[in-house]
Design a protein around this nucleic acid. Structure first.
Lengths: 162, 162
DNA sequence: ATTATTAAGACCTTTTTTATCCTATATTAT
DNA sequence: ATAATATAGGATAAAAAAGGTCTTAATAAT
């Protein structure tokens, strides 16, 4: 639970790439390779992003995608919701009357408040901010790149024991 | 994405029920029926909760489960993590060196901060608090219980169009 | 001791979600 | 015309989630 799906992650990476290349159309293949995303998967994601107005597409030779809106206006939350549908943590928060405990269930209030905090945070983060954050990071020597040591730290059996 | 899993929801409901019945052992069947949870599923969840020290089990006639710790000490976060394993939003946050963008990827910082806010909130919510919140809610007439009207409001196609 | 009750444990099935790939078609620059 | 590209859609395969069944073991009441 609570993983960012690949789809959302890939979409964000792709749009981030376009934010750094606003002067031209960029092909899916180029984006995918630059950002380590499977090409056919990204292609489909970008079809969706085009329908939703995040990017413009240009067919034909030397075509590709470009941002349709300013990186300053596009938030992480929007991207994620575009790809995964509206975020809601629990059915009960959406379908009133669905949960038998409904109004009385106190868990949902806690959940809802947490959700609001979280989503607010994502809504406050624009592509522009991400691009400049990345720029700062690139500068750094990034020396302390431990050799992926803690390999043992894997996700034990987890959950209800299948 | 971002749904509270049924398992976590059910576990929380079950523990909530026990918090309101600390004077005796309560059978899985009773809990399940009182809280609208599938009996075998809840049984399995409670086995896990017993192993993890949340509840004590008592076999035999008139046996059942009881809380092993004070409702004041048990947080929502603990319950969820007990049932689903540690919460982490993205592999990259756990497997250093897994994501090719790794240190440079700015999305993860945003994600991580949001996660911290969210988890902090869940960690600050105890069973005790939930019980008293529920008590307050029960008092209210809960009249405005709309007849589950908006049935049309279902979860459209969503996502990448399968 | 026997019996009824209840948890423990081991499988199993179905459904949903995720993550992919692939093929055919429409467009466009050259 | 040709090559490069996006569009549209289906196909699928693997994993996780949700839920169920059945047998065994413990325990309390009789």
């Amino acid at each position: 639970m609570f993983r960012l799906s690949k789809a959302a992650e890939y979409a964000a990476r792709g749009l981030l790439h376009l934010s750094g290349n606003t002067d031209r159309d960029v092909s899916v293949e180029e984006i995918a390779k630059a950002r380590s995303v499977p090409v056919p998967y990204l292609a489909k994601l970008f079809q969706l992003l085009a329908r939703k107005g995040f990017v413009r597409s240009q067919r034909g030779a030397d075509g590709g995608f470009s941002l349709a809106r300013s990186p300053r206006e596009i938030t992480l939350l929007e991207i994620i919701e575009a790809v995964e549908g509206p975020i809601f943590l629990n059915d009960c928060l959406i379908h009133k009357g669905f949960c038998p405990m409904d109004e009385a269930c106190p868990i949902h209030d806690v959940w809802k408040k947490g959700q609001e905090m979280f989503l607010g945070h994502l809504r406050g983060t624009t592509l522009e901010a991400l691009v400049s954050a990345a720029a700062v990071k690139e500068k750094k020597p990034r020396s302390n790149l431990k050799p992926a040591s803690g390999a043992s730290f894997l996700r034990r059996k987890s959950s209800v024991k299948r």
